[in-house]
Write a protein that binds this DNA or RNA. Sequence first.
DNA 1: TTACATAGGTACTGACCGGTAACACCTATG
DNA 2: CATAGGTGTTACCGGTCAGTACCTATGTAA
Lengths: 200, 200
Amino acid sequence: MKTGTKTITIEKIEGIPPRARILAVAADLFYRHGIRAVGVEAIAEAAGTNKMTLYRHFASKDELVAEYLRCLAEKANSSWEKWAARHPGDPRAQLRAWLKEMADHVESGSERGCALANAAVELPEKDHPARRVIEAFKNAQRNRITQLCAAADLAQPELLADELFLLLEGARVTAQSMGRTGLGERLIRMGEAMIAAHQK
Amino acid sequence: MKTGTKTITIEKIEGIPPRARILAVAADLFYRHGIRAVGVEAIAEAAGTNKMTLYRHFASKDELVAEYLRCLAEKANSSWEKWAARHPGDPRAQLRAWLKEMADHVESGSERGCALANAAVELPEKDHPARRVIEAFKNAQRNRITQLCAAADLAQPELLADELFLLLEGARVTAQSMGRTGLGERLIRMGEAMIAAHQK
DNA sequence: TTACATAGGTACTGACCGGTAACACCTATG
DNA sequence: CATAGGTGTTACCGGTCAGTACCTATGTAA
């Protein structure tokens, strides 16, 4: 069984402090190869530093993983804020922006599913520090969509929100194990059809 | 980072030959703890045998994984056959049987997602023997549903099939990282709503 | 100058990994 | 009884894993 990652990707050593370099590299490697498949040594090396420095910034690999997921959750949050600012008072447009982004994502060749969901698959131990992050994020995501569906004055907002949420979640998993040509476009058609079906 | 599994689960040593015992134990451990988290030694031990015997039946851990997934795919196939026999000439009832099974599954406490999809998350190497199994299965599954939607004389069968397929796929991933109380029932409502929306 | 914090480097620990060699055993068939 | 094939046992291989001890270099602020 092959494991580990020998990808030497010395990152821009520029002014960026080690902690940020480590996080950036870890995010890339964890996502592409899986969390359990990537060793801390490989991360440190790819970040142009060493294991000791990594352990000065993160208490353990598990904590590094949790921080990696926390960063992603934050990034998703700021995406929502961006869409809210771009379409103020127009929840339906915000939903569409989300749908569009996911569709693009899913069709991009580098799609490997939702990093948070993948982490949940790889780390079933219910006391893992990453699980709190994952559960909080997924619940927040679902609540946000439900709220937007309600604000958009669509019928049965909770049910519609679940439909959309699960549809996109499913698309992201499936993209890893099936052809995804045209999936993005189909995804938008499906999402729009669901929204239309809940028009009052 | 905790790894390995010390769960000692000496399986019924009855007349069952070692190969079958190994496969049964591997299926349980792989699903519950993840593929990379379970070592061959732990599998052999839990199956009441040893590593040598395991390697006499499986060329490598990767092959054991592939065989594990192959068995699951076969089991799913026979489920479809069962439903076809139970509801001959009634594709809609067959779809409903599938929906019902997935809904029950998702709400059961032991749900950890689709084992095939999870394996795709854990094994991104595109030349892994398991990937062929996964891709073949997912494509077959999607084709089957599309065919049933068409046979049920529903509008836009390909699109509806994708909606249902992705919805259930999403539900299974999400069940790992979110509360699932009532998810089964909601799932059926969503599926039925989608089918109804495609009524001609 | 001194003092301190941050970082790099090397080498190590102890445990586990997948996989193999060699040999003893047991049982079924001839 | 003899033989052969499947099985159990133990010990081992080379490699990797997460995590740590210890020492050096550098930069900065007093």
